[in-house]
Design a protein around this nucleic acid. Structure first.
Lengths: 237, 237
DNA sequence: CGGTCGGTTGAGCTAGATCAAATCCAGTGG
DNA sequence: CCACTGGATTTGATCTAGCTCAACCGACCG
């Protein structure tokens, strides 16, 4: 991982949503967003730069405006687990305790809106709706984490990859012709799914040969939703 | 840190230990617990009985008083992932959305204190401290879940088992002579760690042969803390 | 005392890891 | 515009950690 760049502060105030529509299901807006916005800053981060490191004091939290962010845990010997990929509309670092227990890195060039956690805590302290909203974010993250634990603990490689593709279909706004962008590298996908790069490649290649998906370099398209759903066996109910 | 901690008998107020995060916020009770207690019921559950099922509407949440509870996700074909084991003092179901996304089952005979979630939601609605306390519980669960994802995605079988034993050492009050009870079956441990029963057995047997642990039928004792720590490689920082 | 149910141990088997070798672009410089 | 270069991706060949299948053991129980 390159430590090449510091996050570059960028004050350009983006007024309109010059963005693709946010399909991210991260939840409703913060009830008291108006007051918070005054203390927020818009920041641009280069590809592969770090928003924050494992163990950094959690002074800020972030909302992704554009681009893709990964949250990462490292073991001493370099083994890596990517907790999740965050997309426009998603919140990041809201649920942290005193320190961030994950690093956050830019998968692509990224624009985020940065909020002081102190302000958010204060808002939560006198407006229960804000506190409730925060709890909602944390609860959804927890639900996702639990689903991912089934994936990591009990699913086969092709189930993992198929499930991942379906998740991307739902989360990433499609390009024309049903093509879904896949901004992260094979290595990132592997470290997210608990596999190796080669296994991810082989699964994707297999799906392509079977006519289940079409595969571009950094995009894919679902050819047979049914086949993909069958590959990614769901948890009960 | 030695293995010869004095047995902590006050289970509901264990203070946070350095190693593994527990679900219960170490000593922090719900700020408004008094009012809630009036709406709570004490319930006994038989071994292997269900407190609630996957998909049940989340009408209640629980605090474990005695015994051990597992939270479980099932796949259609019967594969099982145990999310966590809950011990006295831990809260259960607090972070649920409308429905429980995990089943909860009694590992041993269990006594729980049951609270109506509606009452808790109301309390959270007019007392921000309660909302904040709930957020704390969810945040700690999230941190645990993330650590477990590294375990499931990237650790070897013996690392998983060694880490599990160390977690138990810190969470379960010791019996005399440093013996730690292991209330759950090998199958439960396997489904928690993403392994098979046989692999769990073999790892434990190996540790015993190496003199790292002593092994009873439903207990174990750490013989070499250092060896066990070395086996369970930690995540960085 | 026989039966059942966890747990343990042994003997292969295999999904996925590892090692190695193309191949494919994207970006660079001429 | 084109050749060149370096990293990412793909594919192939082999290896192995952990799974599966099967036998056995020992505690508990009616």
């Amino acid at each position: 991982m390159q430590t090449s760049h510091q996050p570059t502060l960028d004050r350009t105030h983006r007024i309109g949503l010059s963005l693709p529509p946010t399909t991210a299901p991260a939840g409703q807006d913060c009830p008291d967003i108006g007051a918070l916005e005054q203390q927020a800053t818009t920041i641009s981060v280069h590809k592969d730069a770090e928003l924050y490191a494992q163990g950094d004091p959690a002074r800020y939290c972030y909302r992704i405006v554009a681009g893709c962010v990964r949250t990462v845990k490292l073991m001493d010997d370099g083994r890596r687990q990517i907790n999740e990929f965050l997309l426009p509309g998603d919140w990041l670092g809201v649920e942290a305790l005193a320190e961030h227990d994950l690093a956050a890195e830019a998968v692509t060039a990224v624009t985020v809106r940065r909020y002081p956690r102190r302000a958010l805590d204060q808002a939560a302290g006198h407006d229960c709706r804000v506190a409730h909203w925060l709890l909602g974010i944390a609860s959804r993250q927890l639900r996702n984490a639990r689903d991912r634990m089934v994936t990591l603990g009990r699913k086969s490689a092709s189930e993992r990859v198929a499930g991942f593709l379906l998740e991307m279909v739902d989360r990433v706004p499609h390009e024309s012709a049903g093509h879904v962008p896949l901004p992260m590298s094979r290595g990132d996908i592997a470290d997210h799914l608990g596999l190796t790069i080669e296994t991810v490649c082989r699964c994707l290649a297999q799906f392509r040969r079977d006519g289940t998906i079409a595969l571009g370099r950094a995009t894919f398209a679902v050819r047979s939703q049914a086949a993909l759903l069958a590959l990614a066996r769901a948890t009960r109910h």
